[in-house]
């Protein structure tokens, strides 16, 4: 007896629930997460070193968590700023997930932290799919990576709430076409702000910090078109997915077979399949 069952479950539902909970928990204590995404070598750590130092000088309580496949070098660099820093070794995993982040914050994140910067694993594909419970998602690209980077990684740049160009000190040398880059960003994420920085020259220093602090103070972060969607994640409240938001991701679905609004589809599906599969 083969039975067709209409599950309708978002694959990343567990992570999404975790992220929502973490965001709410942190908000309640006055902390926001800033999630930094880029290719390896774009300059996340260098920029962060500078911004953390600035925050410390301004007396703004910040902390940083950096994820790396295998080494602790970034944490050592970031810790020089004097703010609390934690290294997470993902042991080969190409992205952080909300649950992992939450677990790492327990017993570590100082209670009064306003901004927690998370340097995600250097990768523009995988981390883009995982909400970490951040309130500001930042995609970075250095001037050496080509103006079409946003088109090559549309999900990463399309979901960003702030785009940071790094290594502007060498922009001229490498012939960085700022207008083309901006146009490409606008194509996948109309309305998102693009800021230009250089950790080496100090250009744009404090911009990332300012934007993050504004969000922590209640300013509305940019809502990307790609994030403002009516697909399963948001339109099914009240439908199958509502169950998962109530916590018991999978508990509810077995019931769905005999109970709620799914029942017609199931009954029909089961009947058809039963016929089809009978020898």
């Amino acid at each position: 007896m083969c039975r067709v069952v209409d599950l309708q479950q978002a694959v990343l539902a567990k992570n999404d629930i975790c992220a929502h909970e973490l965001r709410a928990e942190l908000a309640a204590r006055g902390t926001i997460v800033v999630n930094l995404l880029s290719s390896p070598g774009s300059g996340k750590t260098a920029l962060l070193e500078q911004e953390l130092l600035l925050a410390r000088r301004r007396g703004l309580p910040v902390a940083a968590l950096t994820a790396d496949l295998a080494t602790e070098n970034d944490a050592v660099r970031l810790a020089r700023s004097g703010v609390p820093v934690k290294q997470v070794l993902t042991d080969g995993l190409c992205h952080l997930e909300a649950g992992m982040l939450g677990a790492h914050l327990e017993d570590w994140l100082p209670e009064d932290t306003r901004l927690l910067f998370v340097e995600n694993v250097g990768n523009l594909v995988c981390p883009a799919s995982y909400d970490l419970g951040e309130s500001l998602r930042v995609a970075l690209a250095s001037v050496t990576e080509g103006e079409d980077k946003p088109l090559k990684y549309p999900t990463a740049f399309g979901l960003a709430q702030l785009v940071v160009v790094t290594k502007m000190d060498i922009a001229e040398a490498v012939g960085f076409d700022e207008a083309a880059f901006r146009a490409n960003v606008q194509q996948v994420n109309p309305g998102v702000e693009v800021v230009l920085t250089s950790a080496r020259s100090g250009a744009g220093a404090g911009l990332l910090l300012d934007r993050a602090a504004a969000v922590a103070d209640g300013a509305e972060a940019h809502l990307p078109v790609m994030a403002h969607r009516t697909d399963a994640h948001h339109s099914h409240h009240g439908g199958g997915e509502l169950h998962s938001h109530e916590g018991g991701l999978l508990h509810a679905h077995p019931n769905a077979q005999d109970g709620d609004g799914h029942s017609h589809a199931h009954a029909a599906g089961a009947a058809t399949t039963a016929r089809a599969h009978r020898p």
Partner: peptide, 30 residues
């Protein structure tokens, strides 16, 4: 790559109607 500005009037899309699904629609099991 996606074009999220309106091809007719150039305004930013009001919403993405579809395209980010990662959804188990259904299964068939014994």
């Amino acid at each position: 790559p996606p074009e999220l500005c309106c091809p007719v009037c150039g305004a930013a899309a009001a919403e993405l109607l579809a395209g980010r699904e990662l959804q188990i629609a259904g299964v068939c099991w014994e």
